[in-house]
Design a protein around this nucleic acid. Structure first.
Lengths: 192, 192
DNA sequence: GTCTATAGCGCGATAGAC
DNA sequence: GTCTATCGCGCTATAGAC
């Protein structure tokens, strides 16, 4: 099963690189040095760079949405669920050094330079996340925990944009502390 | 003054490219084709790519902050000022095709790939914008227009992250309509 | 100021030995 | 599966003619 291990190592390193420097600045050369194989060997697992990025996005999508669904399925209050959702993002920001952004946030910034099958993955990820945020907000509205004004779906879109943006801004200015302050301010607004 | 015109043309085209595809994907070749000169001639005005990007950021910083200061100086309500501030962003999103992001948002996403004198410009731009948003929010708090809970400076940081993120997300999903809906939802939250 | 020409590098990708 | 070797491209940047 050495081949599976190598494939996973490549994906892990590639994801780390994309989260730091973006898709365009990530190269087979960088990956090969970090993994300890030659860059030609990477083409054995991922013939083209688009194949690699697609695999990256699919793996992250499955991983992330499964975590989110796990949070939603728990019998917790809506506030706890929303806080946990925001923490999913923060965990990435804090892991390793503080210079990693959300994978889909980075890819979204470079969206125009991507080919079509990749673009659709990004829009789908955004839509799915907003839908799940909407579920949490609806629960909070019904239970009376959340008293924010306006449409829950509009609020879900706002929160998702806020978290993606908060990630990128925090990297330049304030770091995890600033991100946490923003989430705290958000919680106050949602409770209303 | 033909030289000044050419220099401005280069900056205009380069800015448009960075807002669409990012710093790393923007090339002297792309610029030369759009301006109608050879790429070697661009080096006459901007010896290195870092020189070009620095000039780009400085010009945009001056232009944008002057607009913001103009908005703040007017004898308008805080709500009008905040709406105008958000519209500054939206104007960029709508200009040309809908696939442009905020210049500093794009550069922020690629922050890790930038050299140091450029990084500082980005952090300064973020800080200056949050400070000005804080001014507007304070005015609204004092006049009684804004009833949001929490610290105005934390709220300013939240709004700035939201607008930068809203930009990037809207490009992938929903466009100017989605961005406008987010701003509308924000206004409701700020009024409290 | 703008041009042609070119250097030098890193990139994604492929062929073929082992 | 992993390697060496190499191709062809696009990039930033420079030298020097006009």
């Amino acid at each position: 099963m050495n081949s599976i291990d190598t494939r996973t190592q490549i994906l892990d390193i590639a994801q780390d690189l994309v989260q730091r420097v973006g898709v365009n600045a990530m190269s087979y050369q960088d990956i090969s040095e970090a993994v300890g194989i030659r860059k030609a060997s990477i083409h054995y697992y991922f013939p083209s760079k688009d194949d690699l990025v697609a695999a990256l996005l699919d793996r992250y999508n499955d991983y992330f949405l499964r975590l989110v669904d796990g949070i939603i399925a728990q019998p917790d209050s809506a506030e706890v669920k929303l806080r946990r959702y925001c923490s999913l993002f923060e965990a990435t920001l804090s892991s390793g050094n503080g210079d990693k952004a959300c994978l889909y946030g980075m890819v979204g910034a470079e969206l125009v330079t991507l080919k079509h099958p990749l673009v659709e993955r990004v829009t789908t990820f955004y839509r799915d996340n907003e839908a799940r945020l909407g579920q949490i907000l609806n629960q909070g509205r019904e239970s009376g925990e959340f008293g924010f004004v306006g449409d829950p779906q509009a609020m879900a879109a706002l929160i998702f944009s806020l978290l993606e943006g908060g990630f990128l801004v925090a990297r330049a200015h304030g770091g995890a502390t600033q991100y946490r302050a923003i989430v705290e301010q958000l919680m106050q607004l949602v409770k209303g």
